[in-house]
Design a protein around this nucleic acid. Structure first.
Length: 437
RNA sequence: GCCGGGGUGGCUCAGCCCGGUAGAGCGGGAGGCUGUUAACCUCUAGGUCGAGUGUUCGAAUCGCUCCCCCGGCGCCA
């Protein structure tokens, strides 16, 4: 039978559903040739679908001639459909084996599948469109989807409303240097680097909002933590303080960890990742205390500046669970952060730091809701008020105290799974040196 | 932008210091094999050594210029 004759693929089974209790069952599988080992009279094919791999055995004397010949002919990564009987066999890699009765090549792959065992990272990402098929990359994408699902379920449960912000914007959140410009009917528009300003507009109607949307940063970073395009989980709520938003953040991170740990066991095992669900509430230390911790590790941080990477890592290494550093100096934060009324040189803001040297996971805080105070900060930072006209107008019409945060979805994945590089967390990563495939 | 590492068959690399005209493993092709575990055995094809330029009888190898890639930092999620 060829695929042209098929009325339906009649798919009924997935690899992950097969175990020793399936012995004797006739299954129909669709997927790909992951490995092939040919021995003359017997051929082993490692079959792969989205849920795992299983060995398929074809014997010249037992399988039909058509099935055996198709197995001889098939190449690595060809798409196949097969019917066979499940058998328990200790010699098979997963302890289970399918003895073929029907083997159909749905789409024959060329003989030179380029991804070999010793392929380097650069090559794998040049071939990302093919590399994505591999079990590890499939598992990462499945977990990424579950992080999104966990976030939706958790935030919906806390009464947040999902919003869908613009990606094409006219001004930046904090400056201009890190925006990607584009031609927009004779004027210049930019790709959004954060939806925060739009969230602040949305909360007066919706009270609690969140989004998962792409953000763009035109910064030539050469590190394993940076992308030029990433998926940004941002939330904002009104009638709320800095303490309220830290509560939202820690409950969310806790919920994500719990969800992934229970829903993604197979993927975590495959990736060799273990998730420790952190206990609530997370520790909160002040910026000043963080400086002291750095000093104990032999690092001198000068007050008023954000921590450098080395110092942040040293501080993070002193913790076993995520923790907040709060009270960052006003001089080190963006113009919209609310200065502490009792101590204006620091802001009511915080970063959530992942432990063990990982570093920043989220950044958030309470925003300035008073117009005069915001204008003052805009002038202090030499920004142009006309760029923020609608954002300022929000403050003229009853904007309550409010707070929010942002988290990079890919960074969350890197932390949870212990990935070596943030590009592993992306379907098609975008970095300064990579825009294709 | 700054600091460091690197560009040699399809892939991963050796050769470069001490110049003599390119090699391995994997992958590909052909053949063999009834229990493999990214199988094994035999045969085989495949490279203007990142680009330009200089020195030299001779450059993958030495000098200069440039390009690209990788890691780190500044900054950030």
């Amino acid at each position: 039978m060829t695929s042209k004759e098929l009325k339906t693929y009649g798919k009924s089974d997935y690899v992950s559903e097969l175990d020793s209790s399936s012995a004797g069952k006739i299954v129909t599988l669709t997927g790909f040739v992951h490995r092939k080992r040919e021995h003359g009279g017997v051929i082993f094919i490692i079959f792969r679908d989205p849920t795992g791999i299983v060995q398929v055995a074809g014997h010249r004397k037992h399988a039909s001639q058509a099935a055996f010949e198709a197995m001889q002919q098939v190449t690595l990564e060809s798409a196949i459909r097969l019917i066979g009987k499940v058998q328990v066999d200790k010699r098979a890699p997963t302890g289970i084996e399918i003895h073929v009765t029907s083997f159909e090549i749905v789409s024959l792959a060329g003989s030179e599948w380029p991804l070999e065992k010793d392929a380097g990272d650069a090559f794998l990402y040049d071939k990302r469109h093919l590399y994505l098929r591999s079990p590890s990359q499939t598992a990462i994408m499945q977990i990424k989807a579950e992080i999104s699902r966990a976030a939706h379920e958790h935030l919906d449960g806390e009464g947040f409303t999902e919003i869908f912000p613009p990606i094409l914007v006219s001004a930046s959140v904090e400056g201009g240097a890190t925006l990607f410009p584009l031609e927009y009917f004779g004027s210049t528009a930019y790709l959004s680097q954060s939806a925060q300003l739009y969230e602040e507009a949305a909360i007066c109607g919706l009270e609690k909002v969140y989004l998962i949307a792409p953000s763009f940063r035109a910064e030539k970073h050469r590190t394993r933590r940076h992308l030029t395009e990433f998926w940004h989980l941002e939330a904002e709520l009104t009638f709320a303080t800095h303490d309220d938003i830290m509560g939202v953040e820690e409950r969310l991170v806790h919920a994500i960890c719990k969800h992934i740990k229970s829903k993604c066991k197979r993927q975590l095992t495959l990736l060799g990742a273990k998730i420790k669900v952190p206990s609530l509430p997370f520790k909160r230390i002040t910026y000043d205390e963080a400086i002291e911790i750095a000093a104990q590790q032999g690092f001198k941080a000068s007050w008023g500046e954000d921590f450098g990477r080395e110092i942040e890592r040293a501080i993070s290494q002193q913790f076993k669970e995520p923790f907040f550093i709060k009270g960052y100096p006003t001089s080190a934060r963006s113009f919209y952060h609310l200065p502490d009324p009792d101590r204006p040189e620091v802001t009511l803001s915080s970063d959530l730091i992942a432990p063990g040297g990982f570093g920043e996971l989220t950044s958030g805080g309470q925003r300035i809701h008073d117009l005069d105070q915001l204008m003052e900060r805009i002038h202090e930072q030499s920004l142009d008020p006309s760029s923020y006209s609608w954002y300022l107008e929000l403050r003229e019409f009853g904007l309550p105290p409010h707070a929010g945060f942002g988290m990079g979805l890919e960074r969350c994945l890197v932390w949870l799974l212990g990935l070596k590089h943030i590009r592993e967390a992306c379907l098609f990563p975008r970095t300064p040196s990579r825009i294709r495939p």
